[in-house]
């Protein structure tokens, strides 16, 4: 082996390697177990003794030099690969992102959870009540006896059963059920489904969600009610909204109110507030003594307030849903958006 010629030849080959695979091949050709250098070293024994040392040194020098060239070339290739990777050639920033397939929770569920969490954090318990309800709970115990004109506005679905069953028209029956189950003082909310036999349109459906709230304690006052409702609105709209209470008639509260909040969507009137800057948000009031009595609670000792919040309406406000019927439509193109 001529060390100089071998080295020159190897240098050419190494420099022309375009990738690690080719380099590995060249490295093997010269430095492998059966490579050129190994063959030269194996041939030393056949040389005259005086040449052996020189030939051995030459071969080892070549070996070392080639190894250095290989390592250097590998570094160059690495650097080039890194450079190339960084160049971003072929990257099209206008390509769409990959679509992530996900599931979804119904908007009513999301709004309900948010409110449940808010009230749970304030020590309210969450109760459930049946959707097919006894007339007793839906009306009688709520101070709405048979033939009371207030029954008109309830547009009740009557179940053909002698026991006096109705599809509950509001979540208020849970007030009475709560009083039967719990010892005062207590604070509860009861979200759920309600039914009204009324013509459906973009803002009315015969099935909708409400959330009842009730607090029973000592000397619960209108002032407490106002405070609790303002806290509730802060939780929902994440800012302070002016509220106003005005008289509203609901037989199960006395005094009864409608609570209006300053429209969170405008300052000088919009379609949501019907250009009044107030939105009618929730009916509420102090629990009527007859209702406390119907629930087995002494109205001389205890008092309380109750309120009802329209969850369907709130979900519509929250997400800008323009047709309430989407909520029960089961259309995936709607559901997927949440």
């Amino acid at each position: 082996m001529n060390p100089e010629a071998t080295l020159e030849e190897a240098r050419d080959q190494i420099d022309s390697c375009a990738d690690h695979a080719a380099l590995k091949e060249v490295e093997r050709h010269y430095l492998g177990r059966k490579g050129v250098v190994a063959a030269a070293l194996a041939g030393i024994g056949a040389l005259p003794p005086e040449q052996r040392k020189q030939a051995g040194q030459g071969a080892n020098r070549v070996k070392q030099a080639i190894q250095e060239l290989v390592d250097a070339r590998a570094e160059v290739l690495d650097a080039a690969a890194l450079e190339s990777e960084r160049s971003g050639a072929g990257f099209d920033p206008s390509l769409p992102p990959a679509r992530l397939e996900t599931g979804s929770l119904h908007p009513i569920t999301q709004v309900t959870r948010e409110l449940e969490d808010l009230f749970l954090s304030m020590g309210y318990a969450v109760l459930d009540g049946p959707e097919v309800e006894l007339d007793h709970y839906n009306f009688e115990a709520l101070n709405i006896p048979k033939d009371h004109p207030a029954r008109d506005s309830h547009d009740t679905f009557f179940c053909d059963d002698d026991g006096g069953l109705v599809m509950r028209t509001h979540t208020s029956p849970v007030q009475v059920r709560a009083m039967e189950q719990l010892e005062p003082p207590f604070r509860v909310i009861a979200p759920g489904r309600c039914f009204r036999q009324e013509t459906t349109d973009a803002s009315h459906d015969h099935t909708f969600y409400q959330m009842e709230g009730m607090v029973v304690g000592r000397d619960i006052s209108v002032g407490h009610l106002i405070g609790a409702m303002r806290t509730l609105l802060r939780g929902i709209f994440e800012r302070d909204l002016d509220v106003r209470l005005r008289p509203g008639y609901f037989p199960f509260v006395e005094p009864g109110f409608e609570l209006d909040a300053r429209c969170p969507f405008c300052e000088d009137g919009c379609s949501v507030c019907k250009r009044t800057t107030w939105i009618e948000l929730l009916p509420c009031g102090l629990v009527h003594p007859n209702v406390l009595s119907a629930g087995g609670i002494d109205p001389e000792k205890w008092s309380g307030f109750a309120f009802g919040l329209g969850l369907s309406r709130l979900a519509m406000l929250r997400y800008g849903i323009d047709d309430v019927r989407h909520l029960f439509g089961g259309d995936l193109r709607f559901l997927e958006q949440f």
Binding site: G123, A125, R187, I220, G223, L245
Partner: peptide, 21 residues
């Protein structure tokens, strides 16, 4: 009612009863 001052409720601080369902 608008002339009635807002009031905070005072009540025992305790977690609400659990609701397994």
């Amino acid at each position: 009612y608008g002339n009635i001052p807002e009031q905070a409720m005072l009540a025992a601080v305790e977690p609400p009863r659990p609701d397994p369902r």
